[in-house]
Design a protein around this nucleic acid. Structure first.
Lengths: 345, 345
DNA sequence: ATGAAAGCGCTAACAG
DNA sequence: CTGTTAGCGCTTTCAT
């Protein structure tokens, strides 16, 4: 194994000079630097990570805690993970992957053994037991998701509340007055998953603002679940002319069922979703949707912890603005309600 | 920060005693051990990972190289990743996650800086440039997937060749004599992805053995791609009565299209797939399928590198036996061919 | 602009 | 059964 001492000897300089060439923390004469770099290349030297970590208290590793069974669509989860890895690499960091099931102890372990410089935690629940641990850790951290009390923590997420509202705004703007919401499976809400509740809140608030009749149901992604959800929606009030779907996995079954029931999209029913662009565009009818900007969220979270490592912790909630992309699944309602008090044309 | 010296002082023993209590590498009197453990707990001591790595040349970390854009179904990829993390944790190891795009240099980096004790590489291509690097690395490694020349490497995978054959066997056993194969997108084959070719080879071999007419087509997972694939299949020969699908992502569109074309499954067409159980069971018709045992493969790969760390490198190819699960999508062909030379009943 | 040397916290001989 | 100590390879003062 080639050590820094080998390089120093080979380049006829001291060990510290080699170290400083690598870190750039003090000026080196051009000539010396050339010689050192040549030796490094020639010998194929790579600094030992453990020794570095021990001497500098910096590992250049950040930990990412990933859910085992996700409340979100798995491909989107994957995008978060690869997004974090890619962003971390751009900051000269590697990523240590932990799973949710290690819980609080997992955080304590990697932080306490100094395996990591910082932590990023996904799939945050409203009242997550890990929050208190993160607040007390010496390492900076960032959450992907926003808990009930984000004080003292850096959080990044899509603004799901606005996302829910934007979907309603779009439908209401087209003239829809009866709007249904098809959400995640019931357990997701029971668990207090933050983004699910925020979306629902945004949906309800916007529906109220627009004076639209709104009903919402939970939904499992299989055919049976979707049928049940649609039935519940009908039972809850007047037949909706527009649907907001916050359940990416249920979309294929939903379109399948509507199709075989003879419901045409968007002629008979408009559908707006919160889902990946990929999903929105691979379905039989391209779906008007707010996408989840996973890469952006991931890189923003990495930036947050990097700032923390740089000494400017700046906790706070950073919400990304939702962007609705209009596709073929939304249009004017079949029988637009008479314009009340509108100027006659 | 609490160090081993603090613990030693607190327990009135030497540093080495604390170290040995933790490692169990020499016998300690029960009384001393109790005292040391009590001090560890009381002080909340956690050994510093960097110091450990430096002194012992063991990081207790293994690197996992994950594809960025996978040839496989993303949820299955995810299962591999979580499977590796879970198995690694069971062996007291953490997982450093790298992405494919770091290529050969990524392997050299984590291995050369001694960040990791071992490596697991996914999504291996027939002639992967990383293989030569892995063979030369001092750290043990395991591949998930089997390249053209696996010599000197530990490889784990489902036996895709047999999987392809098993699907044909099942259909042929039911009496099907015209069998189509719907595969992955064309680029997957062009790229030389090993499991795709192996499956196809198994399919072809078995069809030949059974004397069945067989045609195969590549397929993208969208509706257009599936329609095109079906058309190609028809153009290639007689209308198949059975289909083997090795493209999990295309299954929903396939069933959708067949459904709207009035093709009933399994009455008019039997469908057998190689896909996750989850997918097989969430479609409108439960699909007879060979599942990819991702967790098993992952834990087998972890076991392989752990053996390597234990000094018994044992390279070689370990193929898991495919298991076909019969569901509703396969049945006797509509018009069974007359039994030639079979005893009349 | 460069060098010498004191640690960083731990493991594992070596010595009883 | 336990203690002493020499490194592991690097970063970072402190000197010059």
């Amino acid at each position: 194994m080639v050590t820094i001492a080998d390089v120093a000897r080979h380049a006829h300089v001291s060990i510290s000079t080699v170290s400083y060439v690598l870190s750039g923390k003090r000026s080196i004469s051009a000539e010396t630097e050339q010689r050192v770099r040549a030796s490094i290349r020639e010998l194929g030297y790579r600094p030992n990570a453990g020794a570095r970590a021990l001497a500098s208290s910096r590992t250049n590793v950040l930990a990412l805690v990933m859910p085992l069974r996700s409340d979100m669509h798995v491909p989107v989860l994957m995008q978060f993970v690869t997004g974090v890895v890619t962003a971390a690499r751009a900051h000269e960091h590697d990523v240590l992957l932990l799973t949710q099931d290690e819980g609080v102890e997992g955080l304590r372990r990697v932080a306490g053994t100094a395996m990591t410089d910082a932590l990023i935690v996904m799939d945050i629940e409203e009242d997550d037991p890990r929050l208190e641990v993160l607040r007390r850790l010496p390492q900076p951290s960032a959450l992907i998701g926003v808990p009930a009390d984000p004080s003292g923590l850096a959080c990044v997420d899509l603004d799901f509340e606005t996302a829910g509202a934007v979907c309603v705004d779009h439908l209401a703007g087209l003239g829809h007055r009866r709007i249904g919401f098809i959400g995640a499976p019931a357990q997701v809400y029971e668990r207090g998953t933050s983004f699910a509740w925020h979306t629902l809140a945004g949906f309800r608030g916007a529906a109220e603002r627009h004076g639209a009749a709104a009903a919402s149901v939970a939904c499992t992604p299989d055919h049976t679940g979707v049928r049940r959800a649609l039935a519940e929606l009908r039972a809850a009030g007047p037949e909706p002319s527009g649907l907001v779907v916050h359940n990416e996995d249920a979309l294929p079954a939903l379109l399948d069922i509507l199709g075989s029931d003879g419901v045409r999209i968007p002629d008979d029913l408009s559908v707006v979703a919160i889902c990946s662009d990929q999903q929105a565009e691979s379905l039989p009818v391209p779906i008007t949707a707010v996408a989840i900007p996973a890469e952006e969220i991931a890189s923003s979270a990495v930036r947050a912890v990097m700032r923390g490592l740089g000494g400017e912790p700046r906790p706070g909630v950073h919400l990304l603005r939702p962007r609705l992309r209009v596709r073929a699944s939304s249009a004017l309602p079949a029988a637009p309600p008479p314009a009340r008090g509108a100027p006659t044309s």
